[in-house]
Simulated scan of single mutants.
Amino acid sequence: MVARKIFKDLDLSKADLDLIDSRLEKVSYRKGDIILKVGEEVPYQYYVEDGCLRTFFQDKKGKGHTLQFAVNDWWISDYTAFINSRKAIMNIECIQDATVYRMTYQQLESIYRDVPQVESFFRRKLERAFASFQNRILSTMADSAQERYLLFLKAYPEVDRSVKNYHIASYLGIATETLSRIRKRLAKE
């Protein structure tokens, strides 16, 4: 019963948990799978049970920019497109083998209607995510590359050890070589 794991902080009845589970679809992906491409419909949001995914886009010069990592117990989607029924503006890549549960916007809305506590759960998650993105924007504007890396380590401690340097560098908005220099400097301290 994955709903019990996802909504562990909520006091939900067995009927509520069964209803939620009936609306979640378990899917497995392999490292390297692109599960969403720019320009596609965005039918799902994903709950990561195991593994690691990232959202990214490519600029006009073809350079990749990572917006978000999603590891165990995190949610991921192209939320701009998912919520507004638009085409994807970013990609989702599986960067470690992953097991996820996905649901459509309609399924999410029906859960909100049938289990109101879930709506407030997601509202709180979205508020925290919005604050996190706002802090990340401010950090990108004001903090040094090393300060941004240290903040990254706090937010994603398990990601640093398990993904490629260039993914982390693209998330931080720095060159891979810069990340290597920062890591060497921190190791000496």
Rank of each mutant, 00 (worst) to 15 (best):
S120M: 09
L53S: 03
D21H: 02
L179M: 12
L67K: 08
I111F: 03
D160S: 13
G39W: 09
Q58H: 11
D143M: 04
I111N: 01
V115I: 14
A81G: 07
F122I: 03
A81W: 04
H65A: 08
I174K: 06
G173Q: 01
A145W: 04
E25N: 08
K188D: 13
T104Y: 08
K60T: 11
T80K: 12
K37F: 12
L108D: 11
L10I: 07
E119I: 01
D114Q: 15
R86K: 15
Y149R: 02
I20S: 01
D59C: 12
R185V: 09
R128F: 08
V71E: 11
L172V: 03
Q45P: 07
D78M: 01
G32N: 06
L17D: 06
Y171N: 01
D97I: 13
V100W: 07
N165K: 05
L19E: 09
F82R: 07
V48H: 02
R136K: 13
L24C: 05
N72K: 15
T55M: 02
R185I: 07
R181V: 08
P157R: 10
E119M: 11
A3K: 00
I83P: 01
A70Q: 05
K60Y: 09
D78R: 01
L153F: 00
R23G: 05
V42Q: 05
S13T: 15
L36H: 02
Y166E: 08
S144T: 12
C52T: 15
W75L: 06
V27Q: 11
V48K: 00
L126I: 12
R128Q: 12
L19I: 10
Y105M: 14
A70N: 06
W75R: 03
Q45L: 12
D21P: 06
R86A: 12
L126C: 10
F82I: 12
I34K: 09
L67I: 07
V38A: 15
R148F: 03
Q106H: 14
I168F: 03
L150M: 13
M141I: 07
E127N: 04
A70G: 06
Y171D: 01
I6H: 05
L19C: 05
E25R: 08
L17A: 08
T99Y: 08
V38W: 02
V115L: 09
Y47G: 01
I137S: 06
A142H: 10
K26Y: 00
Y166C: 04
S22C: 07
K5I: 09
L12H: 03
S132P: 02
K60E: 15
D73A: 12
G39N: 05
S13Y: 04
I83N: 07
N135Y: 07
L10H: 04
L153A: 02
D97V: 10
N72T: 14
Y46D: 01
D11K: 15
A88N: 05
K184S: 14
L10E: 02
V115G: 06
I89K: 13
F69R: 03
M141Q: 09
F7H: 02
D73R: 11
I35W: 10
I174E: 00
D97Y: 10
D33G: 02
N84D: 13
L12D: 00
E158K: 10
F56V: 02
L19A: 08
N135R: 14
L36K: 00
S110K: 13
W75I: 05
R185M: 11
I95V: 15
L24I: 11
L19H: 03
F56I: 01
W75V: 07
S22H: 04
L186T: 08
I89E: 13
P157N: 04
I35K: 08
D18C: 04
